[in-house]
């Protein structure tokens, strides 16, 4: 069963025909070619596919595309400006060595963004809790945490 939905994607109103079993991840990667949304497990367990829907970070691989109807979706592609100016979180990730292979990076940045949007001054525990669902095999997380702290305007 297909249906056309409308939603806001990275600040623009878009529409797309979606099927019942389709996930938001598939919709974003295939239809919109937003390949910054990564698939690491397809089962809601790694966080690589994290996007922000109505202010909440969630895993797009288990989120039905149809649910996006009328909502606002932000992917990593929606953070930097068209001129390439990075979001403060992105700059902090770059400057603090929080990126190695980079596969987990979009998801980590977006989870952190959802956190900081709600809680501009989180404690380290709150940061760690917010990023708990975003696995990273490369960094051991320390530099990611430092980056988020720095972006929150706190000195690590």
């Amino acid at each position: 069963m297909k249906r056309t939905i409308e939603f806001e994607l990275n600040g623009q109103l878009v529409s797309a025909e979606v099927g019942g079993g389709q996930t938001l991840l598939e919709l974003l990667r295939q239809r919109f070619e937003l390949t910054g949304v990564k698939e690491g497990c397809g089962a809601g367990e790694c966080g690589a596919c994290t996007v922000i829907v109505d202010g909440r970070a969630l895993t797009a691989c288990i989120y039905p595309a149809m649910e996006a109807e009328g909502r606002s979706v932000t992917t990593i592609e929606g953070l930097a400006t068209a001129e390439g100016a990075l979001h403060p979180l992105q700059s902090a990730f770059v400057e603090h060595g929080a990126v190695q292979c980079g596969f987990c990076t979009p998801g980590n940045v977006l989870s952190a963004k959802a956190l900081l949007d709600q809680n501009p001054d989180p404690s380290e525990d709150e940061i760690r809790t917010a990023l708990e669902g975003n696995l990273c095999r490369c960094t051991g997380y320390q530099q990611i945490i430092e980056a988020v702290k720095a972006a929150a305007g706190r000195k690590p």
Binding site: T35, E39, E77, L86, F93, V99, Q100, G102, F103, P106
Partner: peptide, 22 residues
């Protein structure tokens, strides 16, 4: 020097193309 990774910008903006994306 503590210089950032040259590929970090591409990775942090989702522009880097992995085999999964190709």
């Amino acid at each position: 020097r503590r210089l950032p990774k040259v590929d970090a910008r591409d990775k942090v903006t989702g522009r880097a193309v992995y085999i999964n994306d190709l």
